[in-house]
């Protein structure tokens, strides 16, 4: 099975491709280069919630958590580790 990180990367890369950006780095700023805007962010949040069965609160939808693929991965992984029984 693909890693959490890879699945997040693939989804974000898909958003980027729709915007004509062909290459993104895992540590790259997603808001600075316009990949994540006010609409894409909620597509990404829905994807994370549906794919990984986590709940992301409005207060957690902030730049610190969504600055890069790495930070998103950390957010999701932390949530998954906190509730091992659920999976």
């Amino acid at each position: 099975m693909e890693s959490t990180r890879q699945q997040i990367y693939d989804f974000v890369a898909g958003i980027a491709r729709q915007k004509g950006i062909s290459d993104i780095g895992a540590g790259e700023g997603l808001t600075e280069n316009g990949i994540i805007d006010s609409l894409a962010i909620f597509r990404l949040v829905s994807f994370l919630e549906d794919t990984f069965g986590v709940r992301i609160a409005d207060d957690e939808i902030v730049n610190e958590n969504f600055a890069s693929v790495d930070t998103v991965d950390r957010l999701v992984t932390t949530k998954l580790e906190r509730r091992p029984a659920a999976r």
Partner: peptide, 10 residues
């Protein structure tokens, strides 16, 4: 700031 425009809570 562009880095918060996408985040309603911020």
């Amino acid at each position: 700031p562009p880095e918060i425009a996408a985040f309603p809570s911020s």
